[in-house]
Design a protein around this nucleic acid. Structure first.
Lengths: 201, 201
DNA sequence: CCGTGTATTGACCAGTCGGACAATGAATGA
DNA sequence: TCATTCATTGTCCGACTGGTCAATACACGG
């Protein structure tokens, strides 16, 4: 006995939301058509009705993951800092702080990253997200490195290093929180970044 | 018709080797009892005969992965460098170079990393490997930071940062090699590390 | 030469997965 | 009011999974 109608576009979002919740608890592997349907209180047939292939569903789920966890907004407070090195350090700290709350989303991001190693479409989208992430840092890096042009550090590389500091933090903190002193790490990373400015050496 | 006997302890290694080859090509998901058995030219029943549970097999496979890819040997050339900052930079560069060749093993390592997020036993072993990796850097970091004790950077944090630079490099380079300038990154990372010494500031 | 233990096989099982599909219900327009 | 459209359901299917197990062939000690 087919149930009531709710043919709004909401259905897709509802399903993706259910998938997201499932993924948070059980990982991408746990995102099965039936598990998602159960979480959304639908028949699993309906899920494949909206997303013809399961891959499409996990693609849509990737959108959700990227939207909620891989976006970088430079807060007003940070943007207002005049001195470029300090601004870079502050941005770094802001991101590290953000990482500390709700690590579950980040876990999903890394799971997708691992998936991307084998699947081209996912790899491209994650790569693009990383590139956008780097771009935000690159802007500051250019400004910072402008005076000390004699240096062998390019803005692009500096941005990549910043991203490394952030993702490396997440990676290490996730895998053994016990042996990882997050406070000390943040101090060190920030101080390292800010130390770039004074002497181009 | 049960085949010939070869009851040596070699069988286990042979199976793990087959599993490793399968994993390199198809990822950990592809490591199925039957796939491994086929690769090793055995019946899948024999695989479960040696490794009672599949988990034991993927545990043994993790050993293999860690042994071949997560070990850090400080080469003689590097160890002989007297000046600590330069030594740290050289070690960093050595590891980054090593990452460039044969990324397949590293991919597996990161796949296990993602797996570790959900599975406790794997998480602990990866965490331990990571800690050993950090320890190698910590030794140099202590020596490096000794004179400039006024600094807010602890040896532990510096080691963690070094690991971040390495894993972050792998992360970004593997996912989109096109937009990632490996050469510039290596220059920047090394120069950043070596810049730690001169002025404790 | 013959049992005994064990390495090895293949068949089998229950479970789960993604996907196809006919049947059914509800809304909608004529 | 009735036919049409389409969202929704449950069922069914084939493939594959991890795991069990009886049957078998081999090596070896007596």
């Amino acid at each position: 006995m087919p149930g009531p109608k709710a043919p709004e576009e909401t259905r897709r979002e509802q399903i993706v939301t259910a998938a997201y919740e499932v993924a948070l608890r059980t990982g991408i592997d746990g995102v099965t058509l039936r598990a998602v349907a159960a979480k959304a209180k639908l028949s699993h047939g309906l899920v494949v009705f909206y997303f013809k292939k399961k891959d499409h569903l996990i693609g849509a789920l990737l959108d959700r993951v990227l939207a909620t966890t891989a976006m970088l907004h430079v807060s007003k407070d940070v943007a207002r800092i005049p001195h470029a090195p300090e601004r870079l350090g502050a941005l770094l700290r802001q991101e590290l702080d953000r990482l500390s709350l709700d690590p579950r989303g980040r876990r999903l991001f890394f799971e997708y990253w691992a998936l991307g190693v084998r699947r081209v479409l996912i790899r491209r989208r994650i790569g693009a997200a990383l590139e956008r992430y780097r771009a935000a840092f690159r802007a500051i890096a250019e400004e910072l490195l402008a005076p000390a042009n004699g240096t062998d550090v390019t803005p692009d590389a500096l941005a990549a290093v910043a991203v490394s500091l952030i993702s490396g933090y997440a990676l290490q903190a996730m895998i053994d929180p016990d042996n990882f002193d997050t406070g000390a790490y943040r101090m060190a990373a920030q101080s390292l970044m800010e130390r770039l400015a004074p002497t181009p050496a």
